Simulated scan of single mutants.
Amino acid sequence: MGVTESIINKLWGRLIRDWVAKEAVGAAGGIIMIWKCDQITVEEVNIKGFSVSLLLNSSNWTEKWKLTVVYGPARARERIALWTELRDIREQRQGPWMVGGNFNTIRLPEEKNRMALITTSMRNLSNFINDSALIDLLLEGARFTWTNNQENLIMSRLDRILISMEWEEAFPLIYQRALPKPTSDHNPILLELSNFLEGPRPFKFNLALCETPKFVDHIKLWWNEEYFEGWKGFILFMKLKHIKMRIKEWQKSEIEASRFGKEDVLSSLESLERKEEDSCLTTEESMERLVLLEEYEEIIRREEIAWRQKSRSIWVKEGDHNSTFPPAWLILEGESTPLTA
């Protein structure tokens, strides 16, 4: 099944955006890139054997820059074509360049949980980085970005983001961080540019609150806790106004609880992942991870309800949070939001 507008809508919603995709061959090689049209202008798209490149104008940078997303081949003998392809892309245009994704090879022996010998692929990756004058940013949050999720555990750093000197000069505080991977064998990579604080937003009722067990009980309690006198229309107006006030207070506390609950779950999963990098998990820890994954799926299900409400896309079905489509390696929203790979 190819990438369609419906799939993109499920990933992103019906916002002001555009996208390009490289179809997968079997279960590998697929790339999806999505960007906000009001903040990023794409002047050129170049789809090659192992990569997709965009020539961009972004609202937070006056200079044009090139973005390349990679899905490297699993077979070592095919990677020679990958390095040739990337060098050709670099030669076509100098200037700011960012290249990242799944290179399907490590660079250093310590980037694998089982100490590896230095291979030709490792040398070729290092040579490409050096020849292209790219910066291999330190990875925060994890040592490895991929696991086979098998009893005979193998973990490697296959995913990375490389930037040119122009990027480092424009954004000297830029860094990449591995996020937890509750539903994938790859860690998402967050490229952080700057912090951004959003202003206040108008109140909107969150439909996900209806999923909470005591929602109806709360409404009954709030309806009866205040007494008003006057004509029926006035009483109804005042009761609804009072319920709105209580819902706003409750919704704020629920959102905070959900946010911190999600952070706690992801933090616990991340701790278990870090422990698994050094030693096998005990039976109790494996069961704890299963419970945490169930909690995470419930949190995500409620978030999907909220996003469906925000986008007014009733066709986004609950539970449609899966990884059956090619990975969305990079989502661009400009300076206000970090780049996610």
Rank of each mutant, 00 (worst) to 15 (best):
E254L: 14
D264H: 03
S279A: 07
M245G: 14
S253T: 00
W223I: 05
T283H: 02
F203Y: 08
S258K: 05
G261Y: 05
M238K: 07
W250N: 07
P213T: 04
L240I: 04
L240C: 08
N224Q: 11
C210M: 13
T282L: 14
G233P: 02
F228Y: 10
L269Y: 06
Q251V: 06
A257I: 08
F228S: 00
Y227P: 07
E277I: 04
S271M: 11
E263M: 08
M238Y: 04
T283W: 00
Q251R: 08
E270I: 03
A257T: 12
S279L: 06
K232W: 00
E249A: 13
H242M: 13
N206L: 15
T282P: 09
V265K: 02
S268M: 11
P213H: 01
A208F: 02
K244F: 09
E225K: 12
H242E: 12
T282E: 11
S279H: 06
R246E: 11
R246Q: 10
F260W: 00
I219R: 08
K248C: 14
Y227I: 15
A257R: 14
T283P: 00
W223H: 05
F228E: 01
E225G: 08
I219H: 10
K241M: 10
D264N: 12
E277Y: 03
M245K: 15
R259K: 14
I243F: 10
G233M: 06
R201V: 08
A208H: 01
K252V: 14
K248L: 13
S267R: 15
F237T: 08
L207P: 02
E254T: 09
E225W: 05
K232N: 10
G233V: 00
V265M: 00
H218L: 11
T212N: 07
E249L: 14
L269W: 01
K275L: 10
L269D: 04
Q251A: 01
I235F: 09
K204N: 04
L221I: 14
Q251D: 01
H218N: 15
P213R: 06
M245F: 13
L266V: 03
L269V: 03
E270N: 15
F237V: 06
E225S: 10
P202F: 06
V216I: 14
K214P: 04
K204E: 06
A208S: 02
K214G: 02
F203W: 02
E263K: 12
R201W: 06
G230L: 05
K204Q: 03
S271L: 09
L236A: 03
L207G: 02
L207A: 06
D264E: 11
A257Q: 12
S268Q: 15
K214N: 14
K244L: 12
E263N: 09
V216C: 13
C280T: 12
